[in-house]
Structure formats: C-alpha cells, structure tokens
C-alpha cells in the first residue's frame, strides 16, 4: 500500500502522528519518495516568492513627521543633569592639580598655555575661597597624587554604584 496524498501533505506540514511509519515507507518506496519530492519542490517554490516593495508609505496617513522623537522619562532627565553637574564640578576642582602635573611633560608652548590657565584657575579659586566659607579649616597636608588618585577612584566607584542603582529596575 502506497502513502496517500493526505499522508504526504500532513507529513510535510508536521501534522501527523505516524511520522515513523511514513518515513520507513519512504525509505523503501521510490514512487512515494518521488511524490514527496514533487511536493517538497512546490513548498520550496512557494517559499522562494520574494517580498515586493510598496510604492507609497502607508504610515504617512498616521504620522506627519517621519520618525518618533526620543522620549526620556522625567526622573532620568533630572538624574542625568545632576550627574553632569557633579561631574563638571569635579573636573573644575581637579583642573589646577592636573595642570600642575602637565608641565612635567616639558612641552614648552603647551605648558605655557596651561600655566596661564592654571594661574587663572588658581586666582579664580582663591577668590572663591575668600568669598565663600571663610571659616573652613585649611588643609594641613600636601595634595599628593595618591590622594588625587584615591579621590578619583572613590568618585568613580560612587558613579558606578549610583548608575547600578538607577539601572536596577530597568534591566530585568
């Protein structure tokens, strides 16, 4: 007994419970195997049909603008501004110390520019310290690169932990 047309169709549609029997018949019967391959060819031909492109944009009816603007939640805009402000302040404060290290590189023209910048920054910082917090105790220790590095590392760790906390609910 050969396989029925229905059996072959259901076999290719993976909608049969008699897969094993069908396969063992196909192994031993060239005629049914040929019928199956004809059907498989048809499947392949149907699959090969390419998708065509539209000649007009169906979305135009719904969207006057071509793309969606990025929308940020309010809490994020706030934290981002805060983070940016803190980072900028950190850079401003760190600048004179960084500038002190740079002349060591002995690029005369550049270091001249940096020295000018440094003088400006230090005078500006002096002015600031005179105006603000006059009761603030003065540092008794020299600012060494060790302190600077540990401060930077500390700030970086804080930044990392802060971001981790913020992202905690976003990443599932």
């Amino acid at each position: 007994m050969h396989l029925t047309n229905d059996q072959l169709n259901e076999y290719l549609d993976k909608a049969t419970h008699e897969r094993a029997q069908i396969e063992s018949h196909l192994d031993s019967c060239d005629e049914c195997a040929a019928r199956l391959s004809t059907l498989q060819n048809l499947f392949a031909e149907l699959d090969s049909l390419p998708e065509l492109e539209l000649t007009r944009d169906l979305a135009a009816r719904f969207t006057p603008r071509p793309s969606l603007p990025a929308q940020l939640p309010k809490f994020l805009t706030l934290t981002v501004s805060l983070q940016a402000a803190v980072a900028l302040t950190a850079i401003i404060i760190a600048m004179p110390f960084i500038v002190q290290l740079i002349p060591v590189l002995e690029i005369s023209s550049l270091s001249n520019v940096f020295i000018q910048l440094q003088t400006q920054w230090t005078t500006w910082l002096d002015m600031l310290s005179q105006v603000q917090f006059p009761t603030l105790p003065t540092f008794t220790f020299e600012i060494s690169s060790i302190y600077l590095m540990s401060a930077l590392v500390g700030v970086f760790m804080l930044w990392l932990v802060g971001n981790g906390l913020l992202l905690r609910n976003q990443i599932k």
Partner: peptide
C-alpha cells in the same frame, strides 16, 4: 541634545 550628558550617564546610554 543628550549627547553631552550621555557621556556621564549609563542610564542615559541605556535609554538611547
């Protein structure tokens, strides 16, 4: 417009 603050913020990078 968020490019500059994005350099300071992982959440923003995530969102973008």
């Amino acid at each position: 417009t968020y490019f500059f603050p994005a350099t300071f913020s992982l959440p923003l990078l995530y969102y973008t």
